[in-house]
Structure formats: structure tokens, C-alpha cells
């Protein structure tokens, strides 16, 4: 029997993007679209919030799709099958509010495609026509295409460099849908903050209700620290308990970008010393 936190599978989806199957049967049984877990790798580890991209209740596993951006995610990528993350806590956050709206566009940008996947699935199950837009910098960063095909009625792909699908941004593709097929009834956008910001600006113009999933810096994930503060319609909310999903038209994205960048220098220093250590010890 594996233990909770054990890595059952660790595959590379794209450059610096790993997909982990982690044994966590209780969370697998309970999680709903839009929720996340917090993982602590070991005794020195920080608490890393990660969206639950999928779950297999029979196998008792949850799926995490993680991009290597700093020390913690780089350390995580080195975990081998059979090793164990010391702590996995969840499901956290409020589940996505899913209802039958008609036509819903799900926009997944880069790594954001992973958390968009269970939302597309749930929307489809609720009887919506789901159009998914997958955006990435280039072809090899388009992840989970087959899964998204299965979860959607229509999938449109775009890349920044034109190496796959439409040459352009997700907002261009979304604009195309609006022009050709008319206004969708709802939009979900998950990805880099700038992407969510521009999608929200576009949909605001057309008054299309839009949900975005925010990723402020978190510590506990239970509403205890307030580190995850975001401003929504002029009011302070705690991302971990009030969110992570919010009305895109009300989010102060610029504040979020700035708060996310607060530890940048320290994070870079920490990553550099980790890489230096790895090189010296050839690990």
C-alpha cells in the first residue's frame, strides 16, 4: 500500500513541465473542479499550492501538473516514483461554480491548461457546449491536448510563435469566436496573470461573465495568514478560502502581479544556490 504523498508517477509533459500522480485517496475522493492542494516536499520545504488537475478515485491518486519556476518546483521535479512528499493537504479553496449556461469558452494558457481541464469536464457534464482555447508559447508547451479534446466540443489552439495552431494570443482566438459564433454565455480563463487580465478586459467589453483562477502567494491555505490577499471589486478577499476563482471583471490584476513578485530576488538567490549545489554534487 502506498502512503499518502507518495509519487506514483512522474512524467515530463513538456520542457520544465512535469505531471505527477500522487497517492492521496481521501483528497481524490473529495476534490472538485477548481480546488487545490498544498504540498510540502520535506522538512525544509515551503508550502506549495498546486491545482488538482485530475483525480483517479479507483487508484486513489490526484494529478498535479507543475511548471518548474524556482527552487521548490525544481526540487519537486527530482522526486522519483516511490518517494514521498512529506505533506499533502487538501482539497482547499472553493470549488468552481458550475451551471448550465449554454456555450462556455474555457481558456487555458500554458500550465493553466491543466487546471482548466477538470473545469471543462464538469461544464460539459452539466450540459454546456464547451469550446476550449489552448494557448502556449510554442508547440511543445501545448499540454494535455488529447484530454482537452475529450472534455470539449471544440478545441482551438494558438501559439505565440506560430509553431502550432493559430499564430497569436488566446485573446485573438476568443475574439474570433465572438465574431464568428456570437457571444458565448460564459468564459473561464486560467493561466498567466497577464493572460487572465487581457481575457477579462476583452470579455468585459462584450459583457460576458468571466471567471478567473488566481494564484497569489500562499502559506497555510486555510484563511489563517492573509498572505493571499487579493482585491476584488475594491474589497480585500483571501485567495485561498474566498477563491481561488473570482469574477475576472472585478480583479485588481496589477496588484496581484506585484504581490506575486515580492520575493523575486530572494527566490532567485535561493534557486541559484540550489543549482550551484546540484552542479557541485552532480545530482
Amino acid at each position: 500500500m502506498p502512503e499518502t504523498g507518495e509519487v506514483i508517477k512522474n512524467t515530463i509533459l513538456a520542457e520544465k513541465v512535469n505531471c505527477y500522480q500522487v497517492y492521496a485517496p481521501a483528497i481524490a475522493a473529495k476534490r472538485m473542479a477548481g480546488q487545490f492542494v498544498i504540498v510540502r516536499l520535506d522538512e525544509e520545504g515551503e508550502r506549495i499550492p498546486l491545482t488538482i488537475a485530475d483525480a483517479d478515485t479507483a487508484a486513489g491518486t490526484i494529478t498535479l501538473v507543475v511548471q518548474e519556476v524556482g527552487k521548490s518546483t525544481a526540487r519537486m521535479a527530482r522526486f522519483k516514483v516511490g518517494q514521498k512528499f512529506t505533506d499533502v493537504v487538501g482539497p482547499l479553496g472553493t470549488a468552481t461554480h458550475i451551471e448550465k449556461r449554454g456555450t462556455v469558452v474555457v481558456v487555458g494558457g500554458g500550465i493553466g491548461i491543466a487546471p482548466a481541464h477538470p473545469i471543462a469536464q464538469a461544464l460539459r457534464r452539466a450540459g454546456n457546449r464547451v469550446i476550449s482555447i489552448l494557448g502556449a508559447r510554442s508547440k511543445d508547451l501545448v499540454i494535455m491536448e488529447a484530454e482537452m479534446q475529450k472534455a470539449s466540443d471544440e478545441v482551438l489552439i494558438c501559439t505565440d510563435d506560430g509553431s502550432y495552431g493559430v499564430h497569436g494570443l488566446v485573446t485573438d482566438v476568443l475574439k474570433g469566436i465572438i465574431d464568428k459564433q456570437g457571444k458565448p454565455d460564459q468564459v473561464f480563463a486560467i493561466g498567466p496573470v497577464v493572460m487572465m487580465k487581457f481575457v477579462s478586459m476583452l470579455t468585459k467589453e462584450f459583457s460576458i461573465p468571466t471567471v478567473v483562477s488566481l494564484n497569489p502567494i500562499m502559506v497555510d491555505g486555510t484563511g489563517m495568514c492573509g498572505g493571499c490577499r487579493v482585491t476584488i471589486g475594491g474589497k480585500t478577499k483571501f485567495g485561498c478560502v474566498d477563491g481561488p476563482e473570482f469574477d475576472g471583471h472585478l480583479v485588481d490584476f496589477d496588484e496581484l502581479v506585484q504581490r506575486q513578485a515580492f520575493y523575486r530576488e530572494q527566490e532567485q538567490e535561493s534557486l541559484a544556490s540550489f543549482q550551484h549545489h546540484c552542479e557541485r554534487h552532480k545530482v
Partner: peptide, 15 residues
Amino acid sequence: MRAYDFPRVDTPIAK
């Protein structure tokens, strides 16, 4: 999270 021991531990705190 013992951030006083950063970067030996992973959690930062403002300098």
C-alpha cells in the same frame, strides 16, 4: 516555516 533559516529552508520572509 523557519524562514529565518532561508535559503537553507525554502520559505522566504522580507529582508
